[in-house]
Design a protein around this nucleic acid. Structure first.
Lengths: 205, 205
DNA sequence: CGTCTAAACGGACTACGGTCCGGATATTAT
DNA sequence: ATAATATCCGGACCGTAGTCCGTTTAGACG
């Protein structure tokens, strides 16, 4: 599937060969390189699986065997940035990382996520698309759990899980990008609005 | 409102005939009937534009001329329910309609919307899909404006527009249906969580 | 009626994501 | 080196949404 190297799906189920066959590894590199080229030339929306296969000099089946789907490819392309983002809010310095009060971490999390989405705009949106399971992708459940954790830390009584779901919805890439690109909302206002939102939600407890 | 045939793309350009040609009207009825049949038989997800054209005994081009897109078709099928929903929260009895305090109306709006989405599940989701402009569809901007209005009525200071956007995100059909169908959340908990959310947001003012 | 024209029609066509499976190949065992 | 096999490869194939354009027809007008 997409690169699971930073979050194993089922840690116990790695019964297959651990090492990739050399031709497979070569093709994966070719594909990733070609994908980055195409995105630079045509944008993420201009990248089609057929074009990618052709550019990489590889069959279409190979593309799908490597990445599972278009969304999977996009996630793989984002995996470095995503891993870095994850380690920042889980292990990095406060206020994003541990050491600050929950509310401050929540505010910082939203701001960081907004910045992330705006930086990788097309990619982030494409990685979310199509998926019947976009909400259950490992990264998404991690964000959700993180928000829920911080809510509990702040003493949230009422259904922290659903509150976290509501807050997550606010950070949906498609919505954020739409606000900025179509309605011309300035990113700073998004972050400020997030701050207001989580503050009220937590304070109301 | 919903039926795209009633919404002139460029309001000033109504030079054409106001009345539908009889064959057009006949085909529209055929198509809507066939669509309802197919949905009953195969579910909304099983309705494809090709099958619909065949069932209605009509060319595929006709389907797209009438409804513009699959999402447009779904919206048309929902237009009665949508119109009824709209008139309830705009003109109906309190607490959903005017006459109750803003906060109570907000709570009622969310509950009604959640019930609506759960009732028309597949349809509501399909009507939202694909669209690059799903947030700018007339009904969506109406809901957004309504929420924003109620927030202002409750004295919301900080950026009511973005707050309304955040609250709208929470009511996204795809998310709601995912929570209920995949994670088995009970609808009542969704409504209760919405109540907590809007209460805190408004009270924090 | 007959004529004329704008509107509607239909279905072949394109582009895309995704699947399948017979054949090729890397790797390992002998 | 050779054989055996698990893995990988490629591209033909499918279903779907959406487009295009030559053809047909409704309905207005004379």
């Amino acid at each position: 599937m997409w690169d699971v190297s930073f979050i194993p799906l089922r840690p116990g189920s790695l019964s297959g060969p651990v090492t990739e066959r050399s031709d497979a590894a070569r093709n994966r590199e070719r594909l990733l390189g070609a994908a980055r080229e195409l995105i630079e030339e045509c944008g993420a929306d201009g990248l089609t699986m057929d074009r990618l296969a052709e550019r990489a000099g590889v069959g279409k089946g190979t593309v799908f065997r490597r990445f599972g789907s278009r969304a999977g490819l996009m996630m793989t392309l984002l995996s470095d940035a995503e891993a870095e983002f994850q380690s920042r809010f889980m292990f990095g310095p406060p206020p994003l990382g541990p050491g600050a009060p929950g509310l401050e971490r929540l505010v910082a999390f939203g701001a960081a996520r907004i910045a992330y989405v705006l930086e990788y705009g097309e990619l982030a949106r494409a990685a979310d698309e199509s998926a019947h399971n976009r909400f259950d992708v490992p990264a998404a459940v991690l964000w959700h759990r993180h928000i829920e954790l911080l809510l509990r830390e702040e003493g949230m009584d009422a259904d922290p899980r659903l509150m976290a779901m509501a807050l997550s919805a606010t950070l949906d890439p498609e919505r954020l990008l739409h606000a900025v690109r179509i309605h011309g909302i300035e990113p700073g206002r998004l972050a400020e609005s997030w701050r207001e939102l989580v503050t009220r939600v937590v304070r109301g407890a």
